[in-house]
């Protein structure tokens, strides 16, 4: 881990914070707000790779826990880590790692399909796989109810996958930070 790695990890943690400030877009037909923040998770993994991506998520969450209101909607402090939706937030760490791992593995032949696949698997499947059971257990609501309730956010996440995929592919061409792995 050299200086450059540390700086990039810090930069993406800061980028997460900035993405949280962008006003959420509400799509009328869905009725749920879409924030840019969870796109930062896909970008961190897809641009920095598994290890640095996950570390930048941890760094970001440490600052949130330390009391900076950096989560979308100005939430912050230690309260968010014991709340009902905390599982999604913890999921970001694993999500960035998984996105990064898939992107690294397919680096040589990274294209629209593999990059989007990485974002969907890491940025959506992993996040919900951690968030929904947490919600279900801590709030004592049946798994299926928690699952159905969370599904309202998936269309918004798919929009983020499209943008993140484009950004990851463009960065690979113009400013690559990941080296190929077998």
């Amino acid at each position: 881990m050299n200086t450059k790695d540390i700086v990039y990890i810090a930069l993406f943690a800061a980028l997460m914070a900035v993405l949280g400030v962008f006003p959420p877009i509400t799509i009328p037909s869905l009725g749920v707000p879409i924030t840019a923040q969870s796109m930062g998770v896909m970008l961190a993994g897809g641009i920095l790779g598994a290890k640095r991506g996950a570390l930048s998520m941890i760094l970001f969450l440490v600052l949130v826990a330390a009391g900076l209101p950096l989560l979308a909607g100005g939430r912050g402090g230690m309260g968010v880590f014991s709340g009902a939706s905390a599982g999604f937030i913890y999921g970001w760490i694993v999500a960035a790692y998984v996105v990064g791992m898939i992107v690294e593995r397919s680096w040589g032949k990274l294209n629209m399909v593999t990059a989007a696949g990485a974002c969907i698997l890491g940025g959506i499947v992993v996040v919900y796989a951690m968030g929904v059971p947490w919600l279900s257990v801590t709030a004592s609501i049946p798994f299926m109810k928690a699952f159905m309730g969370s599904m309202a956010y998936v269309p918004g996440d798919l929009v983020k996958v499209v943008v993140a995929t484009g950004v990851i592919l463009t960065v690979k061409r113009s400013y690559p930070l990941i080296s190929a792995k077998a």
Binding site: I6, A10, L11, A14, L15, F22, F60, V62, L63
Partner: peptide, 18 residues
Amino acid sequence: SLALSLTVRFIPVIGVMA
């Protein structure tokens, strides 16, 4: 420590850039 303080410093900088 370096990463923590860098992040705190970077947030307003990236905010201005955005």
